[in-house]
Amino acid sequence: MKKIEAIIQPNKLDEVKEALISIGVEGVTLSEVRGHGRQKGHTETYRGAEYSVDLLPKIKIEIFAPDSRAEQIVGVLSTAARSGKIGDGKIFVSSIEEAVRIRNGERGEIAL
């Protein structure tokens, strides 16, 4: 089993969601997060004084999938979330040891 974590631009959320649904992904977890990458945000002026916007709003998506589907999901995700500009985000994939369905105690891939 794999965990796929993607940090994307909030305005790409709808496209990503539709793309995931179209390939049959069933479970998705979303969170609103803030952070910065290599650019470390940017500066703005308010009433003549500068301030830095260094923690930009992003969306984090977490998907748990069987090993066989991970590559396809990563591909779809990266295509749908891409605008080609700086700040598009990143995708991380890691291995998962166990999954449990709380309702009936099923374990392994069947619980996903």
């Binding site: 703005e44 308010y46 009433r47 003549g48 004084a49 301030y51």
Partner: peptide, 8 residues
């Protein structure tokens, strides 16, 4: 001494 912004 530089003023900093506290945005509305």
């Amino acid at each position: 001494g530089k003023p900093r912004a506290f945005p509305a």
